[in-house]
Amino acid sequence: MAKSRRFFQQALQSGLSRYWARNARKASEADIATLRAQRRRARTLRQYLDTVIAVSESRLALPIIGSNAFPKPHGTDWSWRPALWREPIPAKGRAAVENKEMLGEEVTLFHDCRISELTLRQLRNHREKDLAPFGLRMDVFRFDGSFLSLVIDMPQEAVSGLKREHVVRMDTIVEMEKPLEIFARLNIRHGPNTEQIVRELPLQAEDIRVEFDLAYSNLNEKRVEKMWIDLIFEGPEMNQVVLRDVTFSRRPRAEF
């Protein structure tokens, strides 16, 4: 049935193309009544064609869903864009987000507000410069807590073969309604201990990037179990923060 339908559609499309090609060739010789009728039909058809072309070009210009493409430093041996920025999630948003509530399977919001006036929402990126298919918008209204952080759990591949000679890099694109401070804290669990390295995001820079050099850590390479990152927001009240993209990579540090 599907094959016969496709065959019929192809035959119809081919016939319509020949019909309008013939009309175009003979337009200069057609009588006025015929020409007027053809013009009316052509204008109606052009409206539909223009709509298909406009919508197609708009959608095809968007970042491809599932894309893991982004610039990586030379020597990268692992890279990753979390699923929330890569593909659609079943629940697009959360309102009055409670402590430890998740959006997707890798992103968790932590706070100590008595009354939550926080929202999280996945949104589709439309800008020409965006490489990530999706972004994350966080709206903060009244904030009566003392901390607010977004935790991103990294996959097991991130810690496979992880050594103190590695440099872990995070790149992000951030939009804010008004200035605030954002800190990134890398956490690596090794045995009973957790190594933590904190960096402030350079929000005034064109490329918002932080690097965590594990050479300055006390990492026990033989007992590495898990790695995650906290994005800590200072003074978030009455603000909207959009994370257009968040990506991670790691590479061996250069030897000197």
Results as ranks from 00 to 15, higher is better:
residue 199 R to K: 14
residue 246 V to G: 09
residue 75 G to T: 13
residue 246 V to P: 09
residue 51 T to L: 05
residue 251 R to S: 11
residue 30 A to T: 03
residue 10 Q to M: 15
residue 7 F to H: 06
residue 209 R to Y: 12
residue 174 V to S: 01
residue 11 A to R: 10
residue 147 F to H: 15
residue 93 G to M: 08
residue 189 R to I: 07
residue 96 A to F: 11
residue 106 E to D: 15
residue 194 T to V: 15
residue 248 F to T: 09
residue 56 S to I: 01
residue 100 K to R: 15
residue 199 R to D: 10
residue 133 P to T: 00
residue 16 L to A: 15
residue 153 D to C: 08
residue 184 A to Y: 10
residue 160 S to H: 14
residue 164 R to I: 09
residue 34 T to N: 02
residue 20 W to D: 02
residue 219 L to V: 06
residue 195 E to A: 07
residue 203 L to E: 13
residue 67 S to Y: 12
residue 222 K to V: 08
residue 56 S to A: 14
residue 229 I to H: 08
residue 112 D to R: 03
residue 256 F to W: 13
residue 201 L to P: 10
residue 124 R to W: 04
residue 12 L to P: 03
residue 32 I to P: 00
residue 177 E to D: 12
residue 155 P to H: 01
residue 109 L to H: 01
residue 226 K to F: 13
residue 93 G to D: 07
residue 76 T to H: 05
residue 97 V to G: 08
residue 159 V to A: 00
residue 168 V to R: 02
residue 21 A to P: 01
residue 217 S to Q: 05
residue 144 D to K: 11
residue 155 P to Q: 09
residue 12 L to T: 06
residue 224 V to L: 09
residue 202 P to V: 08
residue 50 D to L: 04
residue 256 F to L: 14
residue 152 I to P: 02
residue 59 R to E: 12
residue 172 T to F: 07
residue 125 N to M: 04
residue 14 S to F: 12
residue 150 L to G: 05
residue 19 Y to W: 08
residue 220 N to P: 07
residue 77 D to R: 07
residue 222 K to Y: 11
residue 233 F to E: 02
residue 70 F to G: 06
residue 214 L to G: 03
residue 154 M to R: 12
residue 133 P to N: 00
residue 113 C to T: 12
residue 202 P to M: 08
residue 151 V to D: 04
residue 27 A to F: 02
residue 107 V to N: 08
residue 149 S to M: 05
residue 241 V to E: 07
residue 177 E to S: 13
residue 187 N to V: 01
residue 219 L to R: 07
residue 226 K to G: 04
residue 192 P to I: 03
residue 17 S to W: 14
residue 79 S to G: 00
residue 133 P to M: 00
residue 182 I to K: 06
residue 132 A to E: 01
residue 8 F to G: 12
residue 65 I to V: 12
residue 96 A to R: 12
residue 12 L to Q: 15
residue 37 A to Q: 04
residue 31 D to L: 01
residue 36 R to L: 04
residue 116 S to D: 09
residue 80 W to E: 06
residue 242 V to H: 01
residue 95 A to S: 12
residue 68 N to E: 15
residue 5 R to F: 02
residue 246 V to Q: 01
residue 80 W to G: 03
residue 64 I to N: 01
residue 96 A to D: 11
residue 144 D to E: 14
residue 40 R to K: 04
residue 164 R to L: 04
residue 249 S to Q: 13
residue 175 E to N: 08
residue 230 D to I: 09
residue 246 V to F: 06
residue 61 A to T: 01
residue 83 A to K: 07
residue 29 E to Q: 15
residue 25 R to D: 05
residue 98 E to F: 00
residue 63 P to D: 06
residue 183 F to H: 14
residue 113 C to P: 02
residue 92 K to H: 02
residue 150 L to M: 15
residue 141 F to W: 10
residue 105 E to P: 08
residue 191 G to K: 09
residue 14 S to D: 13
residue 163 K to V: 09
residue 54 A to V: 10
residue 27 A to I: 05
residue 73 P to A: 11
residue 97 V to Q: 13
residue 27 A to W: 10
residue 252 P to C: 11
residue 193 N to P: 02
residue 243 L to C: 00
residue 154 M to Q: 15
residue 45 L to E: 11
residue 50 D to F: 07
residue 204 Q to Y: 03
residue 188 I to A: 03
residue 72 K to A: 05
residue 49 L to K: 08
residue 37 A to R: 03
residue 133 P to W: 00
